[in-house]
Nucleic acid binder design. Sequence first.
DNA 1: CTGAATCCCTGCCGATACTG
DNA 2: CAGTATCGGCAGGGATTCAG
Lengths: 120, 120
Amino acid sequence: MTSQTVGHPGLPDDPRAEVAAPSPSCPVEITLAALHGRWTTLVVRELLHGERTFTELRRALPALSDKVLSERLAHLTEAGVLDRRREPGWPPRVHYTLTPRGRRLGPVLQALWDWGAETS
Amino acid sequence: MTSQTVGHPGLPDDPRAEVAAPSPSCPVEITLAALHGRWTTLVVRELLHGERTFTELRRALPALSDKVLSERLAHLTEAGVLDRRREPGWPPRVHYTLTPRGRRLGPVLQALWDWGAETS
DNA sequence: CTGAATCCCTGCCGATACTG
DNA sequence: CAGTATCGGCAGGGATTCAG
């Protein structure tokens, strides 16, 4: 399923691992594109704790404007990371949940965390 | 050394995991900042194959301008990912190598690759 | 409540030209 | 050879306002 590792640490034996220019089809860039933008990882982190509504996310990240939050949620939904569920009735309420694929960002964020947390 | 995992997948039990706004001290952002910018991951990938000179990097990534390559190398050196070694004499020649810390980006790129390579 | 539309400001990055 | 200086285009994102 995922590609195999080779002699050099961490780099798969795949033609896409040798592109000579940034390419949207490179798996590394697909992931970085999904996480791209200020606040994005924080939104994902919040949803790793469980389902949240728009308002709950705003309360968890008070300095994040509603416009940018909207953009991030739309982008993550488009990237297959989130599921959107509109609650019928009034007032409008929208619930966001990580998809299975979105939950698999957990280990990715962990890897990013571990490297950044290293002292040396 | 690195932080421990908790119930939720991939998120460490650390106060920095609950910041309410983007913060340069968050380990996840430290890593994303190190990898930030177009071409950066490709430069790291190239150096995962071994030491390279400025010119060798330019040949490996022909569409990358010397200005941006300079910026990336300076940034990665500043981030502790690369070591710079000036060869004495003329013409000037500079060798770049991953530091031990830089080599540890291998697993990080692998995690990014694996998520992006998933079909579902 | 959950966004979309607009405005403006900033920073990235590509191209070009120049230097030790 | 290995950069630095400068300029310009464009996209990101914050504030505000409007809409379903």
